[in-house]
Simulated scan of single mutants.
Amino acid sequence: MKRSGFWFVAPFLVLYVAFLIVPMVIGLGASVTDDGITGHARFVGAANYVELFGDPAVWSSLWHTLIFTVTSTPVIVLVGLGMALLANRMAPERWLYRLAFFAPYLLPVSVVVLIWNWLYQPGFGLINDALTRLGLHEVGWLSTDGMAMTSIVITTVWWTAGFGFLLYLAALQEIPRQLYEASALDGATPFQQLRRITLPLLSRTHQLVIVLQVLASLKVFDQIYLLSGQGGIPGVRSIVQYIYESGFTRFRIGYASAISYVFFALIAVVALVHFRLVKR
Rank of each mutant, 00 (worst) to 15 (best):
W159M: 04
G54C: 05
T132K: 04
L277M: 12
F12S: 13
G82Y: 04
A41L: 08
P23K: 01
G39K: 00
L28D: 00
P56T: 06
M83P: 02
L212A: 06
L199E: 07
V236M: 06
T150I: 15
E181K: 13
A87K: 01
V32N: 00
G29F: 15
T69W: 02
M149L: 15
Y255M: 13
V273S: 07
T73P: 00
P56D: 04
T189A: 08
A170P: 07
M90N: 04
R204L: 11
R196N: 14
R204E: 13
T38I: 15
V32F: 15
L226H: 06
P104N: 07
A258L: 10
G164F: 03
V25H: 02
A87H: 02
E138F: 05
Q173V: 08
D35H: 09
A47N: 02
S203M: 12
S60A: 13
Y49P: 08
P56F: 12
T132A: 13
L131Q: 03
W63R: 14
A100L: 14
M90K: 14
F43S: 10
I267A: 10
S228E: 02
Y261P: 02
A103I: 14
R195P: 03
T65Q: 03
G146M: 13
N128V: 13
L131Y: 10
R250C: 02
W118L: 05
I197A: 03
L134Y: 06
L134T: 15
L194M: 11
G162F: 04
F165L: 11
P190D: 11
L78Y: 05
R177N: 08
V14R: 04
A46K: 07
V79L: 15
R42G: 02
F102R: 01
E245D: 09
L179S: 07
T65N: 03
I154K: 06
L126P: 01
T38Q: 12
L107E: 12
G29R: 03
L62N: 03
E245L: 11
I175G: 09
A46L: 15
L134M: 14
E181Y: 15
I26H: 08
E51C: 00
G125C: 12
S260C: 04
L119R: 06
L119E: 06
Q207L: 06
G45K: 09
V139F: 01
T189M: 05
Y120C: 09
M24A: 15
V32P: 00
S72C: 02
S246W: 05
F275G: 08
A188F: 05
S238V: 11
V70A: 14
V111A: 13
S260D: 06
T73K: 10
G45D: 07
A46Q: 12
S72W: 01
S31G: 14
G29Q: 08
V236A: 03
E138I: 09
L169Y: 10
L277T: 09
A216V: 09
F6C: 12
A30W: 08
T73D: 00
T73E: 01
